[in-house]
Design a protein around this nucleic acid. Structure first.
Lengths: 213, 213
DNA sequence: TAGATTGTTAATCGATTAACAATC
DNA sequence: TAGATTGTTAATCGATTAACAATC
């Protein structure tokens, strides 16, 4: 069987898939077994034709006259997003965000296993956070090489980010989930940024314009 | 003086402004006093013409043959984003994320003052987190009404989100910074979502496709 | 079959990029 | 003045939406 040359999927589509997935989980839990693009769209404030376009870029998952089977579609999206696999995550930086990520149990359920937590501060090393003992950042590179880490969550101050990115590149970590304020680019490592301050600023923009009315 | 009818600014532009702002802060700290769209673009992996377009939708901030004055442009972007004001924030939900937000000191510097922290769990109420004492969520509506709250950060489980949104709408909070998994829409309240799981799933998508190569 | 709803093409809309005249 | 770089228009590109034939 010859795989068709995969057409490039836009980032806009990828970012909608988790929302579809979430709705489908909720629908499944509610015992719904099929849904039309129309009513799924209403729940998500998305146009029905957009949902159909999005889903069709991965293949025909629906059935004319009937809609989409909830469980099946959910499973297919999980496959597309590769969340049917188990990914191994390490957290670097045991500050506020790092601790919150380590303690947050939900990621495990979604297939992201938090395997270890690192920090460079002597006052943190050896402490327990959730089930994890904070390890010395100096041993990070070695740990990654030995343990096949997929994702490195970066919850460190700006000035530490660069050096850690070099470790990520050298050790062939697949992806960096970046919570640091640093703006990171890498040709080899997938980078997903969570810039909380940027998000607050976008919010502030709208807030300020609202007041004016 | 007659204000020109403000042309609508796209969300894409708004989301780039904080990145420009960040770079300008760094440049200013480094003592740089002017910069061209070209070199600013290189730092941000953004096309020079896009930067010029973006900035020009708010007015001509540059000077031909010279570039943009760093400090001045920084100040102007701060004004556009309304981060030259002080915004009052309350955090609802003193779980992992809520605590991290409460302890994170940087927001204060950017003009976001964390005024109070609420939780509904008897085991949390009265506890100290950073400088704040956890207050009973039952008193939230009253607090907002009395204290002129601008932003409500929502770090609660999915099932609590709906009720809290109703409070937000009733009390005329300006905006909700939503960390809960719930997908929230409101005609009156500005909503900014941080869906960590969605972000991880987007990352997972790319990770899975990388492996295939 | 008739009705519903998908899959898919075509039209529209908006955002990005290129190009260049204006001007410091 | 000559060189650099903006402000701004026009061209391109891509994403969203509408429309409808296919089909369950």
């Amino acid at each position: 069987m010859i795989e068709p040359t995969q057409k490039r999927i836009s980032d806009a589509i990828i970012r909608r898939l988790p929302r579809y997935y979430k709705q489908l989980c909720d629908l499944e839990a509610a015992g719904v077994d099929h849904i039309s693009s129309q009513s799924l769209g209403e729940r998500l404030e998305v146009k029905a034709s957009q949902i159909r376009q999005d889903l069709n870029s991965f293949g025909g998952f629906g059935q004319q006259g009937y809609g989409y089977p909830v469980s099946d579609l959910k499973t297919r999206i999980a496959k597309i997003l590769h969340i049917d696999k188990q990914w191994r995550v390490v957290i670097v930086g045991a500050g506020n965000i790092g601790k919150a990520l380590a303690n947050y149990g939900e990621f495990g359920k979604e297939g992201f296993e938090i395997a270890a937590l690192f920090d460079s501060s002597p006052s943190m090393i050896g402490k327990r956070v959730g089930n994890l003992e904070v390890q010395d950042s100096k041993t990070l590179a070695e740990y990654i090489t030995k343990n096949n880490v997929d994702i490195m969550a970066l919850s460190v101050p700006q000035n530490a980010a660069k050096e850690l990115m070099q470790i990520a590149e050298k050790t062939n970590v697949g992806a960096v989930w970046n919570f640091s304020p640093a703006d990171i680019f890498s040709p080899n490592v997938i980078v997903e940024n969570i810039h909380l301050t940027d998000s607050l600023m976008a919010l502030s923009y709208h807030l300020g314009n609202k007041e004016k009315q």
